[in-house]
Simulated scan of single mutants.
Amino acid sequence: MAKIGLKYLVAAKLNEDGTTYAKGFVVAKAIKANITANSNDVKLYADDGVSESDKSFKDGNISLNVDDLTQKVYADLLGHEYKAANSEGNEPETVVASADDIAPYHGVGFYGRVRRNNKDSFLAKWLKKTQFSEPNDETDTKGETVTFQTPTIEGTVFQMSDGTWKEQAEFTEESKAVEWLNKKAGIGA
């Protein structure tokens, strides 16, 4: 399988019931998504050898490089206070970050084109429970040429109470991948 591209990065806040999501949103245009699953690595030794082993999912790491994190999305993902700009234009859109803020859990999804045996399909992924941490804030001066600087937000992927942590589905039509993600995130519902 060859992966070709990445699109439609969405998220939805996990409700307090731990099984449903609030109305979702598009995070940003996706540049790169990196998910690393961490496994338990436990061995039981008996009779001078390995008798049992456990390589089950423990948690994961997620890194999302995007074209932009708007003030609203940044606040939503990290649990910060968001204030919209007022209609008179004398109060700007503002985010207030506090040391006591706790980033809420979100479901996160995206899709990309995959090619197998010269046929394209669209693989969509939904990470059921993620929690993001404050991204690094780097800004460089403009040199002789323009260099685009884009944010990367990282977090941890957890399993749900039923042990599941990810769903993925493959579609022959791109619109079906978007539809599936919209349903997962409650977008347009």
Rank of each mutant, 00 (worst) to 15 (best):
Y74L: 08
K128A: 08
V96E: 13
D67S: 09
K23M: 05
Y8G: 00
A85Q: 12
P151M: 00
G186K: 04
S87M: 10
A169S: 10
G107M: 05
V114N: 11
D54M: 03
D120T: 04
N136E: 08
E144V: 13
G89F: 13
Q168D: 10
G5E: 03
W165F: 11
E167A: 14
G163Q: 06
A2R: 13
S39T: 15
L6C: 12
W180E: 02
Y45S: 12
P135D: 05
S98V: 04
I35G: 02
V26N: 07
E52V: 07
I187L: 01
E88T: 13
S39Q: 13
A33P: 06
K72Y: 11
A177F: 00
G188K: 11
V66T: 07
Q149M: 14
A103H: 06
E91T: 12
F158C: 01
Q168P: 06
W126M: 04
G5L: 00
S56M: 06
M160C: 02
P151G: 00
G24T: 03
K32W: 11
T147D: 14
E16N: 13
F171G: 00
F132D: 01
D101P: 02
E154P: 07
A11N: 03
S175A: 14
F25W: 09
E173D: 05
F110E: 02
D76E: 12
E179D: 00
G109P: 06
G112R: 02
K83I: 00
K23R: 06
S63M: 08
I102P: 11
V42P: 05
S161G: 10
G112S: 13
T152L: 04
M1Q: 02
N15P: 07
D17T: 03
A46P: 15
E174F: 08
Y21H: 01
E134C: 14
E174Y: 12
A185H: 04
T36S: 12
K29M: 02
Q168S: 15
D137A: 10
N86D: 13
H106D: 09
K129Q: 11
K13V: 11
A103K: 06
